[in-house]
Amino acid sequence: MADANNVLEVQEIHTFIGQFHILEGVTVTVSRGSITVLLGRNGAGKTTTLKSIMGLTPPSQGSIVLEGQSLMGRRSFTIAQMGVGYVPEHRAIFRDLTVRENLAIVQRKRDDLERRADFIFGLFPDLKRFYNLPGGNLSGGQQQMLAVARALVPENRLLLIDEPSEGLAPVIIESLIEAIRRLSAQTTVLLVEQNFRVASILADRYVIIDDGRSVVSGQMQDLVQDEALVQRYLGVA
């Protein structure tokens, strides 16, 4: 079961929020260098899966292993320090902090930002232009780019990205797709994406979550062909 080729192995996790049993058995494996996408309807439990990995809604059962080390029972900041970058949904950047401060806060070593600046500004040139502006003054697309950039400052082993294309204009989505494709050459990615077209362009593998359970997984190219499956769980296509 433990496969050295997998960066992340999530096995049968159960998560409660208050008294609500939100995840009732989610299994996800993410192999090194891949982009794996979590699909599923609104409220299926995709965000909760990412938050469970991140330790923000700690699972009560199951196992989560990052390159051989268990993440269960660890505090969120430790999980981040172990090399998991998190890009939350709704572009949760710090609006009162400048772009520079939004990036600097994530530094683990003094020169992280300096070392990664070329890579980050290569992906997102706008962030360099607005370096000293408060995050709240950026456009929606720029804020999303800042949220992704923030996760790139330290050298992470795995990036969790939650619905990056949500609410963005088509042309912005295209440049975001391009950026995620480029950054995935360096880092393994677990993506949540409601936009099926975006998911099918980016992802190598998929896992469908339905009603708090992972129900099907496989190669993205196979899913694209399987209209019945897509119709059943995603109600699109």
């Binding site: 998190y86 949760a92 330290p154």
Partner: peptide, 12 residues
């Protein structure tokens, strides 16, 4: 602004 997010970025 958001202390949970700060924690998720690796700060105790």
């Amino acid at each position: 602004e958001d202390s949970e997010m700060v924690e998720a970025l690796g700060i105790n």
